[in-house]
Amino acid sequence: MASHAEEPDRRDFLTLAGGAFATVGGAMALWPFIHQMNPDASTQALASVEVDLSPIKEGQAITVMWRGKPVFIRNRTPAEVEQAGKVELAALSDRSARNDLLPEKTPAEDANRVKKGRENWLVLVGVCTHLGCIPKGQSLADSKGDFGGWFCPCHGSHYDMSGRIRKGPAPRNLDVPPYEFVGDSKVKIG
């Protein structure tokens, strides 16, 4: 052991520098092995889908796939639109519109979850925000929950006619994906 008075010698320097080199290098070498698990280039290529809306009659809904996830497209009746619009913000547990095209803070009014002039069309990512199940409510025979929209059978989350969480363990409203109308009767998601 070198005494305290001694100057650090070359061996001390090499040990310290070598140790630091190995530590930093080791940590950096770790990243490729972690990052390889992230979505790869083909998955990331943001695919978009075009959907023909003309066969969807009032009150009907269809499910399409986008990025491996189901997307709900619902043609709401005027009564349903009116009912969704009347809900007070205070009655909602998640007050954010969760619309990918609007800022995070946008209030969760029905008008902020649809396109102006096309209020009957509701487009949602059909994945329960609790643990990722697909809520029931798309087909006419399904249970639509206590608020007339969707009901997730896994852990009992109820969504309303605007896809907003009203009851149950889910923390967020159903997400509205980025989409736009192409012409009169088509919608492009993504």
Partner: peptide
């Protein structure tokens, strides 16, 4: 379950999945 982690939850889940589902 991991999507319940605040802030990084979604990123962690997509890392586990290697995709969006």
């Amino acid at each position: 379950f991991f999507s319940a982690i605040p802030v990084v939850g979604t990123a962690v889940v997509q890392w586990l999945w290697g995709g969006y589902a």
